[in-house]
Simulated assay, not measured.
Amino acid sequence: MLSVGEPDFDTPGFIKQACWEALKAGHTKYTIPAGIPELREAAAEKFRKDGIETTPGQVIVTPGGKFACGAAIAALCGPGDEVLLPVPYWGSHLHMIRASGATPVPVRTFPENNFELTPEDLEKQVTPRTRLVILCSPSNPTGAVCRRQALETLAESAVRKNFMILSDEVYEKLTYDPDSPHISIASLSPQANEHTITVNSFSKSYAMTGWRVGFLTAPKWLSAKIGAIQTHFVANVTTFAQYGALKALRDGDGECERMRRIFASRRDLICDLLARIPGIRFTRPSGAFYVFPDVSAFGLSSVDFCSRLMEEAHIAAAPGIGFGAEGFLRISYACSEETIRQAINGLAKFCTSPGMGA
Rank of each mutant, 00 (worst) to 15 (best):
A155H: 08
S100I: 01
A71L: 09
L249C: 09
S201I: 02
E172G: 01
G227C: 13
A317R: 10
A224L: 14
K247L: 07
C77I: 02
W211N: 01
I165D: 03
R147V: 12
G244F: 04
G13S: 13
C271S: 10
A224M: 12
L94K: 07
P33C: 13
D177G: 00
N236D: 15
L188E: 01
T55G: 01
I134N: 03
P181R: 03
T339F: 07
L166W: 02
Q58R: 15
R40T: 02
V291F: 04
I36S: 05
R258P: 10
P7G: 02
Q242V: 04
I36Q: 05
N162A: 14
A313H: 05
F9L: 05
Y243T: 10
A235E: 15
S296N: 00
A75W: 12
R281C: 08
F289V: 04
T28D: 14
T31Y: 05
A68C: 04
N162E: 15
K349H: 13
V170N: 00
T217H: 09
S167H: 14
P33Y: 14
S302W: 08
L246V: 07
Q58E: 15
A43H: 09
P79T: 10
S180F: 13
E312G: 07
G51E: 09
I229D: 12
D179A: 15
P111T: 09
A313M: 04
I97L: 02
A288S: 14
E152P: 00
I270S: 06
E338A: 11
L85F: 01
F298I: 04
V159L: 03
P86M: 10
A218P: 09
S203P: 00
S353W: 05
M310T: 14
A158S: 12
A248V: 10
C69H: 00
I97Q: 01
H93Q: 02
A288E: 03
Q191N: 07
R261Q: 15
D81T: 02
W211G: 00
E311W: 10
M96Y: 08
F298M: 00
F115R: 00
R48A: 12
I183M: 02
